[in-house]
Amino acid sequence: MDATEDQETLALARSGDGEAFRRLTDPYRHELQVHCYRILGSVQDAEDLLQETLLAAWRGLAGFEGRASVRSWLYRIATNRCLNALRDSARRPQDRVAPPVEVPLPEPTRRRGEPTWLEPYPDVLLEELPDRTPGPEARYEMRESVSLAFLVALQQLPPRQRAVLVLRDVLGFRAAEVADMLDSTETAVASALRRARVTLAAEMPEADRDRAPLPDSPVERRIVEEFARAFERGDVDAVLDLLTDDVWLTMPPLPLEYQGHAAVGHFLSTIALRDRRRYVLVPTRANGQPAFGAYLRDPRTPILHAHGVLVLTLRGERVAAMTRFVDTGVLSRFGLPRSLRRGDVRPWG
């Protein structure tokens, strides 16, 4: 849509033309949803905030003077709606309760102060994003900016720093644009960005960036298949052979993290794969990474019960992190059911 068409469409939308409003905003729907997801960490919350953003934009068209682009205006609305949602959730912490665990868990390598409220994002939704080049000041590529490592690190930032870092370093908006979006000053934006970068650098070392094999490459497929076979057999030693020495195991939202072969091996043998528990892993993708819907076998029936989503972070030819999302409710986002029959899935061998 060129500038003239854009102005004509805007004029029609202001007159109450719903179809014109959709033409004006539809090109940005998917990227706005991902933006809300980055800040909030929840797919459902991101969808809700997207709808709030579009409703606010529809109601506020009369006040849109066109000094900024429609895209920047929508990002302003979406970002501030997200910050309001984070403030509201902070006031009502009882709304979010970490799920109970089945058995007492081993002492973790690291215990975070707060739960990590993060959900996996289905790759099928990422495929709907427009091929839009970030602004010239962006520091992260699309693939990295939706990775679990990046998002977990992002969740450690205060909300305003989180928003500034995403707007500046992921989307590449200029400092003046971000200051305008947040009703702030360029000096305050620069200060927030410096603090955010320090925290992110500590959470995401530079050496770990860009070291994963390409998605769906032969290397990635081989690692994923070997991991799935070993995990489905309940072979802890074979799983450990596929992990980096400094591998992390996390289970959002639980604030417990396990690092290294000894800690992860102990967790697998005493918790995940204890008492000859066996799983079926159904392949999918989340956050640009290989993932599985995990289903627990029931030896008394042919039914397989949902046991969350397991996402792998690869480094070179090894698995550097395993992230198990314990909420089975996220499976529906990946088109996966709550239960399966054994005959419905093919074992990895």
Rank of each mutant, 00 (worst) to 15 (best):
L182W: 12
L182M: 11
D183Q: 15
D183F: 12
D183N: 10
S184W: 11
S184K: 03
T185G: 05
T185S: 15
E186Y: 10
E186Q: 13
T187P: 02
T187N: 10
T187L: 11
A188K: 08
A188F: 08
A188R: 02
V189K: 06
V189A: 02
A190T: 06
S191F: 11
S191D: 14
A192E: 13
A192I: 03
A192S: 15
A192T: 07
L193Y: 06
L193W: 10
L193G: 05
R194A: 14
R195I: 06
A196E: 00
A196M: 07
A196I: 00
A196K: 02
A196W: 00
R197V: 11
V198A: 13
V198K: 11
T199W: 12
T199I: 05
L200A: 02
L200E: 03
L200T: 00
L200Q: 05
A202K: 15
A202D: 13
A202C: 12
E203A: 15
E203F: 01
E203K: 14
M204P: 09
P205K: 08
P205N: 13
P205H: 12
P205Q: 10
P205T: 11
P205Y: 06
P205F: 07
E206D: 12
E206G: 10
E206C: 02
E206N: 08
E206Q: 13
A207Y: 08
A207E: 15
D208S: 15
D208M: 04
R209L: 14
R209T: 04
D210S: 12
D210H: 11
D210Y: 15
R211G: 07
R211T: 07
R211I: 13
R211N: 07
P213K: 03
P213H: 07
P215Q: 07
P215G: 00
P215T: 05
D216L: 13
D216Q: 10
D216A: 09
S217I: 06
S217F: 02
P218N: 00
P218C: 04
P218F: 09
P218R: 10
P218M: 12
V219D: 09
V219P: 05
E220Q: 14
E220V: 01
R222S: 11
R222I: 01
R222V: 10
I223M: 03
I223L: 03
V224L: 07
E225W: 10
E225G: 06
E225I: 01
E226F: 03
F227G: 00
F227M: 00
F227R: 01
R229M: 09
R229K: 12
R229F: 07
R229T: 08
R229S: 11
R229Q: 15
A230F: 01
A230T: 04
R233S: 07
R233P: 00
R233D: 07
R233W: 11
G234M: 04
D235T: 02
V236C: 08
